[in-house]
Structure formats: C-alpha cells, structure tokens
Amino acid sequence: MSSRAENIAAATKALHGVSRIRPAEIVFWLAAVAAFFFLPDQYLLLNEVMITGLFALSLDLVLGYGGIVSLGHAAFFGFGCYVAGLLTKYGVADPLLGLVIVAVMTGLLGLLTSFLVLRGSDLTRIMVTLSVGVLLSEIGNRLAWLTGGADGLQGVAPDLLLGRWEFDIFGKVAYAYTLAVTFVLFVIARRFVFSPFGWSVRAVKENALRTSAIGIPVNRRLIVVYSLAAAIAGIAGALLAQTTQFVSLDVLAFHRSADLLLILIIGGTGYLYGGLVGALLFKLVQDAIANLTPEYWEFWIGLILVSIVMIGRERIVGLPAFLLKRLRGVA
C-alpha cells in the first residue's frame, strides 16, 4: 500500500514541477510591460500583436491541448468583434462590461458549435469548422443593415476605460488595456491547463478511447475546452473592436483562420506561449515581406507554410532546444 502512496506523491511532485513558474515566463511578461515604457511609438503594433497572441492562445487551447484541428476559429474572433462593436455603438459603451458580455455570448456560441466538432474524424472537424467560419462570414456580409457589410462597422466609440482613461490615437491606453486583459486571461488559461481538469483534456488528446476507459467523460471535456477557447477568442476580437474603434468583414475572413494556424505553428503548440511568440514573429515576418513586395506577401506566407511541413514541425520547434543542447555540450 505504501507504494501507492509513494506513487501518488511522486506524481504530484512531477506535476508541480511541470506547472511551476519558470524564470523565462517572468522575463516574457516583464518584457511586455517594458515595451509599454520604452517603445512609445510602437503602441498600435504592440496592441495588434498582443491581440493576435491572445487569439492564438485560444486556438492553442483547442488544438494544442484539445487536439481539435480548427479551420474556422476566426468565427469566434469575428463574432466577438462584431458583438463588441455593436454593443459600443448601441448603448453599452463601457469597455469592461462589453468584454464580459462578449465573453458570455461567444462562450455560448462555442458551446453550441462544440457539439459539431465532437463527432467524426479530423477531416470532418476541419470541414465543419471551416463551414461554420464561412457561414458566419456570409451572415456578416448579408446582415449589412446591422454590420455595415463591406463598408465595415463605423462609429464604435467606447467610453473611458474605468471612467478615467480615454482611448488615444497613439494606442497607449489601448496597449495597456490589451496587455492587462491578455495577462489576466493568460493566468486563467495557465491555471486551467495545469489543473486536474486540464490534464484530463490532454489525456483526451493523446488517446480518447483509453481516456474514456478510465472514466473521463471525453465529450464533456472537449465541450468545455472548446467553449472556453471560443470565449477567449471572442474577447480578443472585442479588444480589437474597442481599441481600433472599427470592425470590418475581414475579421471573419478565412485567411484569418489560416494565418492563425500558421502563427500557432511558428510559435509552437501546447505550451501556452506559442501563440504570443508566434504572433510577434509573424508580425515581424509580415512587415519585412510587406516592405519587399506589398501585394504578394501571401506568396511568401504560403512558402513558409509549405517549408514548415516539408522540414517537419517537430524539427523546427525542437531547434532552439537542440542548439542549446549543442552549445552546452561544447561548453
């Protein structure tokens, strides 16, 4: 019997070891805060990167932890964007209250659509998520009287943040706001994935059949993680609507879902920071390419995607660790 107790103790210790806060994480967030003080002319860019990172974090929960390949994640982002924009325009202009309402509504949308991704193979899931994404984009286009259609939703003017700070054109308040919201959601997501519940979600990804055999309700796990991710994606969209004060149909476009996959793959899945790191790298690459060939930058994005798959994702993600090992081995 003592061996059982020992096993449990060892497992608990191992889990605590995995979930402890690493120095690199503290450095990461300090850098994000430092950017606020030292890069005052980059606020708009930083804001965008942070929002994309949050959006990618949401996909990471679905893909990296839940194992669901989604090609329509922009549906939640765009939905959150429009809900926030419309709320602000028609009455509820308080940013934080808006975020809460958006989170609830996109969470519900995630809950409803989660039943669609429970059945079938990866292929079925890809096609269903893709269809949901296209469907929402089409709805946004058709309800032009509400969404502004191709012209976009204009006149989104949120109230002062906490009744004190106005969203300025330089994006100073916007970046601080986005950073704070992202940090809070990140802490929640981190708490979530390292909880027993989070571990059971990972078990579902590894082997759904065995997981159900040890008594974990597989479908319920996936429903929860999908809805939570949807809510986070919605909040990311809401942040974009509130800080840029404009919503266009582009937020629902297919290429947003595809770009998001690329972002997460560059950054790496399944360790939470992949989305944020990937968003930063993606933005840098995008800007560099756009400077060279403004019209045809998608070609290079495509080339990167193809190259990543040809070289192998594991090798690319493993490269930094490999180099570090080599360096240490030499030294």
Binding site: L63, I126, A258, L261, W297, F299, G302, L305, V306, V309
Partner: peptide
C-alpha cells in the same frame, strides 16, 4: 503526415498559387 500538416501544407500551396 498528420491532418494538421496536410492542412498547413495545402493552404500554403493555395496562397502561393493565388499570389
């Protein structure tokens, strides 16, 4: 390769073909 890789790869091709 995994479905995810196939998706990434073929989307990459689509983007390249389009531009």
């Amino acid at each position: 390769k995994s479905p995810l890789d196939q998706v990434l790869f073929s989307i990459g091709l689509v983007f390249m073909a389009m531009s």
